[in-house]
Structure formats: structure tokens, C-alpha cells
Amino acid sequence: MLNLAKVWEIMVTKFGTFMQGVSVTLELALFTVLLGSLLGLLVAIFRRTRIWPLRILFNVYVAFIRGTPLLVQVLMIVYGLPQMGIRLPRMTLCVIALVINSGAYMAELIRAGLQSVDRGQSEAADSLGMSGAQKMIYIILPQAIKVTLPAMGNEFIAVIKESSVLYAVGVYELTYQAYKLASVNYRYLETLLDAALIYFVLTYVMTKLLGLLERRMRRSENRAD
């Protein structure tokens, strides 16, 4: 049976261990989202250009990543790159795997953002003599990013949760820490429930923060009030 007292006890006594896991998880998520958005941005932009080899390459990339399991991708990168002679710290390999994964999803989000910008904006920029790059940088992208920002926030939350698959390659993130504790104290249910609670608090707080940010952005848009 689930022992609620144990849930509490483990949380309190092993709080430090959990927090080490949290810090690794957040670090992973932060790097992944920052680098993933850059990758996604690049991919989204080049999928729109006339450079067709890049377009095909990036289309295949997005389709492949979205159509295969994250765990398989992680295993391929974390064990595959060293096999190819690319020696990097485990943590770096994990970030690479997550960035490659997240970049594909970000590319889709940003693409939707780019598509949401009215055609008239592009025509107005054209009529002013802007080049394709100028138009993208000064007119289209700022508007697309604004539309995409909330979805990027959700991606951050998703990565916090999904990074738990890294437990499989022995990175000391939250899930791994909890599993390790449980395999010593044999309180799997209680210990992993603690981990779940911590994940929940993280994502819940993040959701609320994002909601706040979004409302503030909307308010700055209609500064009538």
C-alpha cells in the first residue's frame, strides 16, 4: 500500500538529492529550448527559401524527428556519436539529442507563426524595396515570434517532462535521482510519487508564469487601458 507518511519523509530527508535532479532537469530544459529555438528558427526560415536542397534536407529532418521516438534518438546520439569518435561529456550529448528533437518541433511552431503573418505585410515590405532577408528580419520574424512565444513556453514545459527519458542513459536528472533512491529504499511508489510531485510543481508554476507573461504582452499591445 501507498504510505503517505513515507512520501513525506522521503521528500524531506532526500530533498537535497531531488533538488540536484531538478537543477539538472532545468538546466537541460533551458539549454534545449534556447538552442532548440535557434535551430527551429533556422530550419523554419530555410524551409521557405528558394535554396531547394536545404528545403528538402530540413523537411526530411522535421518529418524524421517527429516520426521517431525521443528515446531512440537519445540512444542514437548518446551512444552513436562516441562510436563515431565524437567524444563529448554525457551531458553535452544529451543536450544535443534534446536540441535536435526539440528543434524539429520548434521549426513547426515557428513555421506556423511565419504563416500567420498576413500576406499584406510581405507585400508592403516588397513595395518598399526590401530584400528577402530585410523583410524577414525587420517585418515578418518579429511578428511571427510574438505569435510563437506562448507555444515556445509550452515546449519548455514539454521538455522538462520529456527530459526524464534521459534516465535511460544515466544522466543525473530528476527521474534518475528518484529511481536511484528508490532502488536503495525499495519505496518505489513513494519515491517516484515525490518525483512526480516535483515535476508537477515545476510545470504548474511554469504554466502560470507563462500565462502571466502572455497577459502582460497582450496588455502592452493594447495600451488603451
Binding site: D118, G120, Q121, E123, A124, S127, I139, P142, Q143, K146
Partner: peptide, 12 residues
């Protein structure tokens, strides 16, 4: 210069 029916000002 061009002026459009829907203005097409840059909202940002």
C-alpha cells in the same frame, strides 16, 4: 511607393 487597400502597416 505603394499604398494598399488594407493599409498593411507594420503592427509591431
Amino acid at each position: 511607393g505603394m499604398v494598399f487597400q488594407q493599409f498593411n502597416l507594420f503592427p509591431h
